[in-house]
């Protein structure tokens, strides 16, 4: 018997702290696999957010730092400008990027910073217990929209890829999902393309990843995966939103 699949080298042995069925675990693994396959472990620098994804620096066996909530894109800008030959990516959740960090993300994109943002969109604030996020769907129930998100008072779900696509500074933007095998394979390809966009100096890349959050969606992991296709992807259509590489 030959081993055909084993843990990526770029992952530390630490156990993940994520909830059962959480998409962060899959996304973290994909990034580690891509870093291995593109032999980037010794060049990669990760900027971790505040939120569920913050402990990625305990999992990636690469240089990493934790930024203040929402400031990842600005910190990544500072790093990349000093070390252009490194691979610099900012791992951010929907609260981190689409809420408090909008200005930093928006302007890093507008300056065409050659960094990559891995944007995990699971529609809620996970770590803090399931509050509404900018990407929470209309009528979706969260701990801060107990009777469903009323878009008249709580705003509409934000499509970051489409918003950033209007900025001339952005080069490659794609929205993918990690809710079934075929989607995960596509997601991995998108991460590869985003990293390649950065390394070949073509500019700013962002991969938005629809990710299940069973605990806060109050669904089973399998129902969460289906919900992404049946409901979430209607508001957040999958596919390449912009590619001028």
């Amino acid at each position: 018997m030959k081993q055909v699949y084993s843990r990526p080298r770029s992952l530390k042995p630490a156990h993940f702290h994520y909830c059962p069925g959480c998409g962060h675990g899959i996304i973290g693994r994909l990034i580690a696999e891509v870093i291995d396959e593109m032999d980037l472990r010794e060049k990669a620098i990760c900027v971790a957010p505040a939120g569920c994804g913050m402990l990625v620096y305990n999992y990636f066996d690469i240089d990493a730092l934790e930024s203040a909530h929402g400031r990842g894109a600005a910190v990544a800008t500072g790093i990349k400008r000093v070390r252009p030959e490194n691979l610099v990516f900012s791992y951010q959740g929907d609260g981190d990027l689409a809420a408090i960090g909008t200005a930093e993300g928006f302007h890093a994109a507008n300056r065409g910073e050659p960094i990559t943002i891995i944007f995990v969109n699971n529609g809620v604030y996970g770590m803090t217990g399931g509050q509404m996020a900018p990407t929470t769907l209309s009528e979706q129930v969260t701990t801060t929209t107990p009777s469903g998100r009323n878009t008249k008072v709580a705003g509409h779900p934000v499509r970051i890829c489409e918003v950033f696509a209007v900025l001339d500074g952005t080069t490659y933007l794609e929205r993918v999902a990690v809710n079934k095998p075929a989607a995960i394979v596509k997601a991995k390809k998108a991460i590869v393309k985003a990293f390649r966009t950065q390394l070949t100096g073509k500019g700013f890349s962002l991969v938005e990843i629809l990710s299940p959050c069973p605990t806060n969606w109050k669904m089973s992991p399998i129902e969460s995966c289906r919900w992404i296709d049946d409901v979430m992807a209607k508001q957040f259509p999958l596919g390449v939103v912009k590619d001028v590489t």
């Binding site: 620098i45 900027v47 600005a74 800008t77 500072g78 790093i79 400008r81 000093v82 200005a103 930093e104």
Partner: peptide
Amino acid sequence: VFIQSESEIAAINMVLGASVAGA
């Protein structure tokens, strides 16, 4: 490296990034 940032918040965080990268 000179950047006129979008806010003082972004500026101080760019400083953090540049500093952690050794500059």
